[in-house]
Nucleic acid binder design. Structure first.
Lengths: 268, 268
DNA sequence: TCAAAAACGATCAATATCAATCATATTGCG
DNA sequence: CGCAATATGATTGATATTGATCGTTTTTGA
């Protein structure tokens, strides 16, 4: 077996599993320990893997380093204040007993905190949302079935899901990649398919989009503006976008993120 | 077993329960106390867990202990050694790439630890099993859709679930309330309905039942003995039960528990 | 309080892994 | 064909890890 061939096998083995032993690679490549060690040493200086006693491990974090459970550690902290304020407004629309659909996403995930005190029937395709609500609230949780995609933490099914078809909700909450005159934009075709199914199961569609989403564009249109009942955004929304929504007869809710909450909030 | 591998298992075990004993980890990793102590000490200085007398505890706050969400805090520790040994044997039947169904339960939950090093396609109706495997393994996880029942931590759907119908597995693993001449017994009619659906989706039915289950009885029969391919139990199984299974042409696997390996009892 | 049991830490032998060296095989070239 | 260069495999001494033992400390229970 050629050197390159072994390297290919070693790298693929290391990427599969968090750690591969020299012995396993010996068996896998049918070569000697000495050769495998030499290979590992080479790949180590090439930074293709990390050499450890007994074998080699992937150079990438073995997935639970920080103890997985942080749903979307990367995106979650972007515009977190706006997302939280928006999510708060979204939950304020919900009353105990309501049946709602929450589509997975970093903004909608922020709804879990204010939702903790509610008792709604929540249908979601997001594993982290279901997990959090299950552990920290008394809401009834319904989950869509299918494969759990780790990257998005979303559950997708290639098949029609009767659970989805039989659940009908007052409102569906969802985020988006972008929001423009053409409608709601999304990047991933797979997500679009799943989300379109869900949209059909709710009376009102409530879109949670921080103000940066009005300038963001994506190539795929999820649904036209007419389908949207309500948009919740933050006070950074440009006038043009507000006008656009007004003309489309969309109810606009602006969540105030600054300390200046002097506006039309009537509290008791 | 290698250092990294053990660390993986230890961290994954610590995540399950607020505290894990050295003995449990010895059983789980099949290594010595000294090694486990050294590992715990290492992970402690790495701040991956906290070292305490008797074992290790999660570094994260207990959070929701009283609330629903902790998988099976009550049942989980009953016959834990037997359940673990049984689960270990069950996982030994699985090879990378296998499609398997794991029905929710306290015994089947113990499969998550040995499964951490596998790469199977796992279909389950158990939220905790899905959660753990999602966070601590590279298995592909498929979840059935429906309402999450907090009491059992099981996902049930009143409707037919196409995800379920379209997933066909080599083996299905399940626990039971009881196992007698009439077949597999279960207590809850709702569970029976869901489990019967799943049973139809697998070639072989593997039942995980610690030896106490042979004396336990329940009012409802889930399926007859003929449907069962394999039973995995511990070495406390009475001869009468072993004979019953043998006559039903069921493959019997006996997992030896460390406690029962001492044959002579000095005092009665 | 004391005694028994469990858990711990240190030490040492057994084992596994490693690095270095040498031997062998294959290839390329004169 | 002979020879050198390279790659691979085998051997050996060095090093690291593991498991067992033993004495000490902590916990448990009377």
């Amino acid at each position: 077996m050629h050197e390159k061939e072994r390297h290919r096998i070693i790298l693929s083995a290391v990427q599969d599993r968090p750690v591969v032993t020299v012995q396993e690679l010996v068996a896998l490549t049918d070569s000697s320990e000495a050769t495998i060690r030499r290979d590992i040493a080479q790949l180590h200086v090439q930074k293709k893997l990390r050499r450890v006693r007994g074998g080699a491990e992937s150079i990438h974090p073995p997935q639970f380093v920080g103890l997985a459970g942080r749903p979307f550690s990367v995106n979650e902290t972007i515009n977190i204040a706006q997302k939280r304020a928006i999510a708060q407004k979204a939950v304020e629309l919900c009353e105990d007993g309501d049946a709602i659909i929450i589509n997975g996403g970093t903004t909608t995930f922020q709804m879990v905190h204010p939702l903790a005190t509610k008792r709604c029937q929540v249908f979601t395709n997001s594993f982290p949302i279901a997990e959090h609500l299950l552990k920290n609230s008394k809401n009834t949780i319904m989950l869509s079935g299918g494969v759990i995609y780790r990257e998005q933490n979303i559950i997708l099914s290639p098949f029609d899901n009767d659970v989805t078809r039989n659940f009908y909700a007052k409102r569906m909450f969802m985020g988006a990649q972008g929001l423009g005159p053409l409608g709601l934009m999304e990047a991933d075709p797979l997500l679009i398919q799943a989300e379109q199914k869900l949209i059909g199961q709710a009376d009102e569609l409530v879109v949670l989009a921080d103000s940066s989403k009005f300038s963001a564009r994506s190539s795929l249109i999820l649904c036209p503006l007419e389908r949207i009942s309500t948009v919740i955004t933050d006070d950074g929304i440009p006038d043009s976008a507000a006008n656009m929504l007004e003309q489309a007869d969309i109810h606009l809710i602006v969540a105030e993120t600054s300390a200046a909450q002097t506006k039309a909030t009537s509290n008791g």
